[in-house]
Design a protein around this nucleic acid. Structure first.
Length: 124
RNA sequence: CCAGGGGGCCGGGCAGCCGCGUCGCUCGCCAGAGCGUCGAGGAAAGUCCGGGCUCCACGAAACGAGGGUGGCGGGUAACGCCCGCCCGGGGAAACCCGAGGGACAGUGCCACAGAGAGUAGACCGCCUGCGACCCGCAGGUAAGGCUGAAAGGGUGCGGUAAGAGCGCACCGGGGCCCUGGCGACAGGGCUCGCACGGCAAACCCCACCCGGAGCAAGGCCAAAUAGGGGUCUCGCGCGAAAGCAGGGGCGUUUCGUCCCGAGAGACCCGGGUUGGCUGCUUGAGCGCACGGAGCAAUCCGUCGCCGAGAUGAAUGGCUGCCCCGGCGGCGUGGGUCGCUAGCGAUACCGCCCGCCGGACAGAACCCGGCUUACAGGCCCCCUGGCUCC
RNA sequence: GCUGCUGUAGCUCAGAGGUAGAGCACUCCCUUGGUAAGGGAGAGGCCGAGAGUUCAAUUCUCUCCAGCAGCA
């Protein structure tokens, strides 16, 4: 059975409020989605590279998630991977290990502090 | 063989396991499953031009504004693209480069330097005359000097007080005519001593072209909110009715046309939606297939083929072998060099093994071009040089 | 998808075909017991890159490269 992907911008924004685990090649976000099963999505910004680099990174991340989520994924959660600079052509086996670690930490509820979208005292 | 120039093409291949998207068939109540099928590029890129398609505006013509193009002929749906030719420039040649109309329609600019920068001009010179000691004054002169990107045709001879197209020959240039060419233009003849430098990617003039927006176009369905408020302008007349008067719009004008006709129009504020389906891929399509026209671009006919339709966006992950390049190895074969003559050194050429690397780059409605990026490789043609027959 | 703007000294910006400038900042000197302020002097730039037009380009034209903004 295939795992559905996240297709709405609002769901991606909502994932920002969930558990956040950073690794060298990516950042994992996990957020409960109210009984819609395990889903995943991938975000790679223009900062990372051109279209070829971005698309390849997304494809490799999808492959990682398809392999890992059925066993280690959090039930009824949205999983979002955000690409980072060091994830470009990063060794696949290494990232597989990193994703397993990150999912384990997320399952245990141990995330990194959430990013501040608007620092205090500053106008956005 | 070396150096150079032009054109065309490819841009990893094969296999295995696990996966993704479209379409078709089968099974299933549904969710879905199985099988088959097809699945990125030469630039898909930049968005610099030209179109198709869709909606908006529109009655047509003329004029105007703004923008673009600019040798000639052809090709094309069209183009600012392509082909051929002309002219100018570069190169020894093959070949390459050129926004390449007009400067007697007008306005303008040409800094600095320099005597003088566009109706020429007298600083140094040169010559003549006068006064006279170096020199000064007046006049003539554009051959020489200086400056500059550019000095008002060039060279030579004659001529002259010195000079000057002042005269002559040749070259350059303008005008007219003839011949060749569809034409740009070329060749020739006659004539004019030459009166008019450059810049139009300065304004401009001439010729030709152009309505606006873009698939988030546009259409359908569903859900939700609202069926609002404010300001201004014009108007609230006749008729039973059709309609007329009147008002407003169409860049302007003329004729005309559309809307309203008792409400209309313009602007602003406020509120809701960023779901699904469609458009969506068969088209100015592709073919190193054949025939024909043409120097070519390209066109015509016949035959054959269907080659992506995603939408948080599909072609991927891992592995093995092969191919190419680089690095390393007390690994080996050869070559070269050294000497104690069977050992040593090797930066040269192979083989084997190991490691690393294999460009630029991802369709987003679709075509034709241009431009830019690109590791490496293949093929064809041309020019020059060397060697051999 | 479409459209517009910007790129000049370390920073913020002028400049309009011939010589590149201003303010702040920087260095040195004067002033002060010292600092700030003030005064004087000075350094700092292939004008984002490459072609073209022109005698001459930061300026005009074209092509790239960055960055920013707007519309649907």
């Amino acid at each position: 059975m295939t795992i559905p992907t996240i297709r709405k911008r609002a769901d991606f924004l909502a994932a920002n409020r969930g558990i956040r685990v950073a690794r060298a090649g990516f950042v994992l976000l996990a957020q409960p989605n109210g009984g819609r099963g395990k889903r995943f999505g991938v975000t790679v910004t223009k900062k990372i590279g051109n279209a070829v680099v971005r698309n390849r990174m997304k494809r490799r991340f999808r492959e990682l998630l398809r392999a890992a989520l059925p066993e280690a994924g959090l039930p009824d959660h949205d999983h979002v991977l955000i690409g980072r600079d060091r994830g470009v052509e990063r060794d696949f086996a290494t990232m597989r290990g990193e994703l397993a670690e990150a999912l384990a930490r997320a399952a245990a509820g141990k995330g990194d502090p959430p990013r501040r979208r608007r620092p205090e005292g500053r106008k956005g």
